[in-house]
């Protein structure tokens, strides 16, 4: 295999891992605070739609991003009200959000654009463009003429949208917030033993809402990335289970930021390989395309079943906090 081919696969790994990473970190904040969130998928989907729709109508991708984040946060607030304020079942609330999002995005898209539940193709100035870092080549021909180091720089490190760099920067930032700040200490505490936080005179509800809102913001960015950076417009079900794969990555990462990066890169890599090799010929036998498309999901299951080992979730996860007598 050519060196450049490997680089191209890795490059696509980074692109495909970005939405996973953002959603995974969203889940990390929420679950570390003791609120399970299987609504990552729905929040991403709604954000993807609103980001594309508003970017298209306003012509500004940044306005689109804001709209996507806002839409995701609305669902996050819903999740918070259902599961924190009213102490409902967090899983049911998450499922409801996923259904709501899947239906709502398509219906609104049909009403606004009448193109069969999708948004129009976004023009390039209503998308996040790729940033070419100083000194990097941007054309395929230019890259091919470089030496190996130059190729790594130009192909793998340079040439991503700003959201990719943002997602990567979120990893050390999240680690720092979690382990080096007062907020992080309290966040981890409330996911382990909310009674300890409550008796220390800190609001359990406030902390959990903060975490759920942060998850909303990150899911919003993840969704906007899908429709305005990875592709050019919204199509039905475009999140394609990424919210659930992000949850799987979160378990694989044992709720830790750096591990989350590795897990998301691994799952992104499966995705990239599946995308690149659609037709593999093994002698007379041609591997069906469908199998290659399903492969990333199959590998996720295998990794989760075989490699995770003992993953201990935050102890108060999934439990609404009720003050005891």
């Amino acid at each position: 295999m050519e060196f450049l081919t490997i680089l191209q696969i890795l490059d696509s790994t980074v692109r495909l891992a970005t939405p996973l990473l953002l959603a995974c970190l969203a889940g990390l904040y929420s679950e570390r605070a003791g609120v399970f969130d299987i609504g990552l998928e729905g929040k991403m989907l709604v954000a993807a739609f609103f980001a594309a729709a508003i970017a298209y109508t306003s012509g500004s991708v940044w306005v689109g991003l804001l709209a996507g984040v806002a839409a995701s946060m609305v669902l996050a607030v819903l999740h918070g009200i259902a599961s924190i304020t009213f102490r409902g079942n967090q899983l049911i609330s998450g499922v409801a959000i996923n259904f709501l999002a899947a239906g709502l995005a398509v219906v609104i898209a049909q009403t606004w654009f009448a193109q069969g539940g999708r948004t129009p193709q976004l023009p390039s100035d209503a998308r996040f463009g790729n940033i070419v870092l100083p000194g990097a080549e941007s054309t395929i021909r230019g890259i091919a003429q470089q030496g190996p180091l130059g190729q790594v720089y130009s192909e793998l490190i340079s040439g991503h949208s700003i959201l990719v760099y943002l997602a990567l920067a979120m990893v050390p930032l999240t680690w720092w917030v979690l382990y080096r700040t007062r907020f992080g200490l309290r966040l981890r505490a409330v996911g382990e033993n909310p009674a300890a936080v409550d008796t220390a005179g800190i609001s359990v509800v406030g902390l959990r809402f903060a975490a759920v809102m942060i998850a909303g913001v990150l899911c919003g960015i993840a969704g906007a990335y899908l429709s305005t950076a990875l592709s050019a417009g919204f199509v039905k079900d475009m999140s394609a289970g990424r919210g659930f794969i992000a949850l799987a990555a979160l378990i694989f990462a044992k709720w830790r930021p750096w591990y989350a990066l590795s897990a998301c890169l691994l799952f992104g890599f499966f995705d990239a390989v599946g995308n690149r090799y659609q037709n593999i010929q093994l002698g007379e036998f041609v591997v069906p395309v469908q199998f290659m498309q399903a492969l990333p999901y199959i590998l996720v299951v295998i990794v989760l079943a075989g490699l995770v080992g003992k993953a201990i979730p935050p102890r108060a996860g999934g439990e609404p906090y009720v003050k005891e007598r």
């Binding site: 007062r182 200490l185 309290r186 981890r188 505490a189 382990e192 033993n193 009674a195 300890a196 936080v197 409550d198 008796t199 220390a200 005179g201 800190i202 102890r315």
Partner: peptide
Amino acid sequence: HFKLVENFTVVENVILGAE
């Protein structure tokens, strides 16, 4: 029933809420 975070250290538990 103690109100301690079980996987935190002693010092982390002590400062929680009084940082």
